[in-house]
Nucleic acid binder design. Structure first.
Length: 444
RNA sequence: GGUCCCGUAGCCAAGUGGCUAAGGCAAAGGACUGCAACUCCUUGAUCACCGGUUCGAAUCCGGUCGGGACCUCCA
């Protein structure tokens, strides 16, 4: 297994810290609105990472947080004249719905900032006591200059950052690059702390959560590329300060999704919420996996349509093979793979092992589709067909695609038999009627 | 202004030093079929441009042009 590590900017062999276990953490959403389709990319990709590791036998401890205290939530709460926590709850529920829509699992630990307040305050307190942070008028800032390796993740140097600083001047900060750990707030929900009533900055939560939940450094820390700087850089800085090392071995970042080659933004009026996408979410999932995760992905209606069609095609292929086996009472759970299927499987797995190259994995999925279509048209190929269906099952499990095909009921089976009979007897009126019924049931 | 990424057939997209540059979509032609749908087969690129390194480059280096990201608590 090779993974591109943003921290070293290299492809590295994956070595878990604990045998047979993968501990991973993915930065979750700030719950102030529905998620847009760009947010769905890490939701889908890291779900695939998890699925793959589980498939090859690892136990995966997957954690992704909710930022439920934030300026944006306060703004939203004021707009809607609602309590901030009500807003947060609403969008957490909406988030889970969207996660399920796109076929990712919601079964993972999802800590919230509000549940971690004391751990966050403790962490900041330690930073202050050890001189890595300073207090000014009830605000607390991290002293970036104390961390030698600051900038290593995002490939920046402190000097460059200072030179090109477009950072707003905050006279309270010793250095414009210093980031907020705690701040007093004029409005919104506040929490008591040694520095007064206020709220934590954004960067401490993940560190506090990871330390509490995993009790030490983890294997994989993931998120969108925009989190590299400053968010992940700041997480690393805080962790180096107290623990002397980066918090995770491998840092993985997915590239951004654009819409019609433009970044999604409210001002550009090209925001697309996952919930509004409508239609075929499996097709959308396939679309997001069709490009390597580190490359940018451009959304257009046409591009999505291509993969919606592709998914329909794969599903049709699978379904036909499945029912052919079902009719023949040959739908065994286990199957042997012949040389061709093994070749496809090996290529698929190799693609996944190569830094989760889902684009190439999907190519193999398509090759399997072609193979299956050939076998569906052959007589006496049921063994190979069974192998194909079971290999499909494996690929679908890894990629999180679900064709939702169930065995035929007795009634449906009878209709199918009647249809076949009618065709054989050239009773085409009847056959066409039955065909329609079967098509409605999704059998044909 | 600073840092970084990208530019492969009409479109999407793998490949990052070496057999004839994967795969998909679209298009055209063909096969199959009671009709249709589905499916299958065949057909396309010297890799933005210029120069360099090398026995050999889409793949490394330099430059030019074009596009994008981050530096603003956006995945």
């Amino acid at each position: 297994m090779k993974i591109h590590n943003t921290l070293t900017n290299r492809l590295e062999p994956f070595q878990p810290r604990h045998k047979d276990t993968v501990n991973m953490y993915v930065c979750g959403p700030t719950v102030y609105n529905y998620i847009q389709i760009g947010n769905a990319r890490p939701v889908i990709f890291f779900d695939v990472v998890r699925r793959y590791f589980e498939f090859i036998g690892y136990t995966v401890n997957f954690v992704s947080n909710f930022t439920d205290i934030d300026d944006k939530i306060i703004t939203k709460a004021l707009e809607e004249q609602e309590d901030e926590m009500v807003i947060a709850e609403k969008f957490i529920a909406a988030f889970y719905e969207d996660v399920e829509r796109v076929g990712s699992t919601t079964k993972y630990l999802a800590p919230r900032v509000t549940e971690y307040m004391s751990a966050i305050i403790d962490y900041i307190d330690q930073l202050v006591k050890q001189g890595y942070a300073y207090v000014v008028d009830g605000d607390v800032y991290f002293r970036v200059a104390k961390i030698d390796q600051y900038g290593a993740l995002s490939g920046r140097k402190i000097a460059d950052l200072e030179t090109g600083a477009r950072v707003e001047v905050n006279p309270k900060k010793e250095n414009p690059l210093d980031f907020t750990l705690w701040k007093q707030t004029p409005q919104g929900k506040t929490f008591p702390s040694p520095w007064g009533e206020g709220r934590p900055g954004w960067h401490t939560e993940c560190v506090a959560m990871i330390n509490d939940i995993f009790g030490g450094p983890i294997d994989i820390h993931g998120g969108g590329a925009d989190l590299m700087f400053p968010h992940h850089e700041n997480e690393i800085a805080q962790h180096r300060a107290i623990h002397g090392h980066a918090i995770a071995t491998y840092w993985m970042h997915n590239g951004h999704l654009t819409v019609d080659n433009e970044k999604m933004s409210k001002s550009a009026d090209n925001y697309i919420f996952v919930k509004d996408l409508g239609g075929d979410y499996m097709g959308f999932r396939l679309f997001t996996l069709s490009t390597h995760y580190r490359s940018p992905l451009n959304y257009t209606d046409e591009a999505l349509e291509v993969y919606v069609n592709e998914w329909q095609k794969l599903k049709r292929t699978y379904t036909q093979a499945f029912y052919q086996l079902d009719l023949a009472e040959m739908l065994d759970e286990s199957a042997t793979f012949n040389a061709e299927l093994n070749r496809i499987r090996t290529r698929f797995m190799n693609a996944m092992e190569d830094d989760f190259n889902t684009a190439n994995a999907i190519t193999e999925l398509q090759q399997l589709g072609k193979y299956t279509n050939h076998k569906t048209r052959e007589s006496n190929a049921l063994q190979q067909l069974l192998g194909a269906v079971r290999l499909f099952d494996q690929f679908f499990e890894i990629l999180g695609l679900d064709p939702s095909v169930k065995r035929m009921t007795k009634a449906t089976r009878n209709i199918y038999m009647e249809w076949a009979d009618a065709r054989k007897n050239k009773n085409f009126d009847k056959a066409d009627r039955l065909r329609e019924t079967l098509q409605e049931k999704g059998i044909l």
